[in-house]
Amino acid sequence: MKLWDRIQRGMEAGFDSTIAAVHSITEKAGEGIELTRLRREKVRLETQVTRRLAELGNRVFEKISAERDDEIAEKFGIKDILLEVAQDEAKMVEIDQRLKNVLKKSE
């Protein structure tokens, strides 16, 4: 599973929970319809911006990683972050393999 897919699933769950909480809180507080509508719209737009920024970051990450463009990574000061992400992904692959082995043994 790609890093972006994992991030997106987590973000979706978090955003949905946040929106539900805002809806619940504002309705329970008995605020006016217009105030509630404006707050919901603001949360929706904040969520949209966050998703777009995450997608943008993922696209930049994938492009720099695929092209192994150290010059750009150095220029933007993200070379260490790219290395950390690669190391974490390698650890996740290792853990997935270990999980499969444990599950296979328990069958």
Rank of each mutant, 00 (worst) to 15 (best):
K2L: 02
K2M: 06
L3T: 09
L3I: 03
D5V: 07
D5E: 15
R6P: 05
R6A: 03
I7N: 00
I7A: 04
I7L: 15
I7W: 04
I7V: 13
R9H: 07
M11I: 14
M11L: 15
E12R: 08
E12M: 00
A13T: 04
G14W: 06
G14E: 06
F15D: 02
T18Y: 03
T18G: 05
T18E: 04
I19A: 05
A20T: 03
A20M: 06
V22G: 03
H23K: 10
S24W: 06
S24I: 06
S24L: 12
S24M: 08
I25F: 00
I25C: 01
I25L: 10
E27I: 07
E27W: 04
K28N: 12
K28H: 09
A29F: 04
G30W: 15
E31T: 05
E31Q: 03
G32N: 11
I33H: 08
L35H: 03
R37G: 05
L38R: 11
R40E: 06
R40M: 15
E41S: 03
K42L: 02
K42Y: 01
V43P: 01
R44Y: 08
R44W: 13
E46Q: 11
T47P: 02
T47K: 04
Q48L: 15
Q48M: 12
T50V: 13
R51Y: 07
E55C: 10
G57I: 11
G57W: 11
G57C: 08
G57M: 08
N58F: 01
N58R: 00
R59I: 01
V60D: 03
F61I: 01
E62Q: 14
K63E: 13
I64N: 02
S65L: 06
S65K: 09
S65V: 03
A66R: 06
R68G: 11
R68Q: 12
D69K: 01
D69A: 03
D70W: 13
E71V: 12
E74T: 01
F76I: 14
G77M: 10
G77F: 09
K79Y: 11
D80V: 10
L82F: 11
E84R: 11
V85L: 04
A86N: 14
Q87R: 10
D88T: 10
D88W: 08
D88F: 09
V93A: 13
V93E: 09
E94S: 10
E94P: 01
E94V: 05
I95Y: 07
I95K: 06
D96C: 11
D96V: 04
R98H: 15
R98I: 13
L99I: 12
L99D: 10
K100D: 08
L103E: 13
K104Y: 12
S106R: 15
E107W: 09
